[in-house]
Amino acid sequence: MAKFSDIKGFAFDLDGVIADTARFHGEAWHQTADEVGTTWTPELAESLKGISRMASLQMILDAGDHADDFSQADKEALAEKKNHNYQQLISTLTENDILPGMKDFIQSAKAAGYTMSVASASKNAPMILDHLGLTEYFVGIVDPATLTKGKPDPEIFVRAAEVLHLDPENVIGLEDSAAGISSINGAGETSLAIGDPDVLSEADLNFESTSEVTLANIEAKMQ
């Protein structure tokens, strides 16, 4: 793990890290699962965190043994319908939906001279940041449509460091999913997990709540 003094930037996942849009994903995917006849379970919901849209749909179909019941065109239509439902849900987001402590952290990081990017599997990240009033704080957003592989592959966090024009060892990646932590670690960055330390045990740093994430607390954990 790098020293705190080596850190020059942060790469953020979005869902569950900056805002709780994961609940909207869950609601929209639940609708999809009902439509295709797959039983919705907490385990299935957890497995979809940090996973791309088409990969998530495939996991839902596989969970209900429906993988061969839909053509590629059917799958694309289902994914588009899910996204439409999701966009309707996220259109209600405001600054009040930013997770506890995260706006303060983002503002303090920028004020201290750190640069920041977003590494989200969501193609709706620009819209979400706009609704939250946070766009101005980020140098850029990795476009998931340009990636060849999704999390847990490290590609998205490698690109997030490139957006910042930083070497991976100078970046901390923030995630709330095991797939995301694997992605950060594979990219050679310092991984900061938000959530259950037993589930996210591969992370270099762990905070159980976003409200705990401050520059001072990160520095203390990196001593």
Rank of each mutant, 00 (worst) to 15 (best):
S211N: 04
A193I: 12
A125W: 04
D15Y: 00
G50T: 05
Q58A: 14
K3T: 07
D104P: 09
I181K: 04
L166N: 03
H66E: 10
M59Q: 15
V213P: 15
D62G: 04
T21D: 10
H30I: 04
S201H: 14
L44N: 01
H165M: 10
H25T: 00
N170A: 12
D176C: 04
N217W: 13
N83T: 14
L89T: 00
W40E: 02
E189V: 02
F157Y: 03
A145D: 12
T115C: 07
Q88S: 09
A45H: 05
L57Y: 09
L48V: 03
D104R: 10
W29D: 02
E80W: 07
T190A: 02
Q58F: 05
K49D: 01
S108G: 07
D104S: 13
E35L: 04
K110L: 11
F24N: 01
V171E: 04
P100T: 15
I141V: 03
V163A: 12
N85K: 06
P126H: 00
Q58N: 15
A187M: 10
V36Q: 00
R53Q: 04
V139D: 09
S183T: 13
A178Q: 13
V17K: 00
K151I: 15
D153I: 14
K103H: 08
M127V: 02
Y86K: 08
P152N: 00
S5Q: 10
H25M: 03
E80I: 11
A178P: 11
Q31V: 07
G140Y: 07
I60F: 11
D65E: 06
S120K: 08
S108V: 02
D176H: 02
L134H: 08
K149I: 01
S47I: 10
I156S: 07
E169N: 09
T38K: 01
K81C: 06
S183H: 06
D104N: 15
L147N: 09
L205S: 14
V139F: 01
A73M: 11
M102W: 12
T210V: 13
A111N: 13
S201R: 03
N124I: 07
G26L: 01
I7T: 09
I60D: 10
P42R: 15
E43S: 09
D196P: 03
Q223H: 12
G140P: 02
F10R: 06
V142S: 03
G173N: 15
K110G: 11
E208L: 12
L14A: 05
W40P: 08
L200S: 08
I141D: 11
I141L: 11
D130L: 09
T148P: 00
M102G: 04
E162S: 08
A125E: 04
D167L: 14
V118E: 13
D13A: 06
I18E: 01
I18W: 08
N185C: 09
D143H: 11
I141W: 11
Q72R: 11
A119F: 00
L215H: 11
D176W: 00
K151A: 01
E219W: 11
T41S: 00
H165F: 06
G186N: 07
D6R: 12
D74I: 14
T190F: 04
D62H: 13
T146D: 13
Y86C: 05
G173Q: 13
S183K: 03
E169G: 02
K81L: 13
S56H: 05
K8Y: 05
I7E: 05
F138K: 05
G50V: 08
A19R: 01
T41C: 01
L192W: 05
T214W: 15
P42G: 11
N85T: 06
G150H: 07
E189G: 12
A45S: 06
A28T: 14
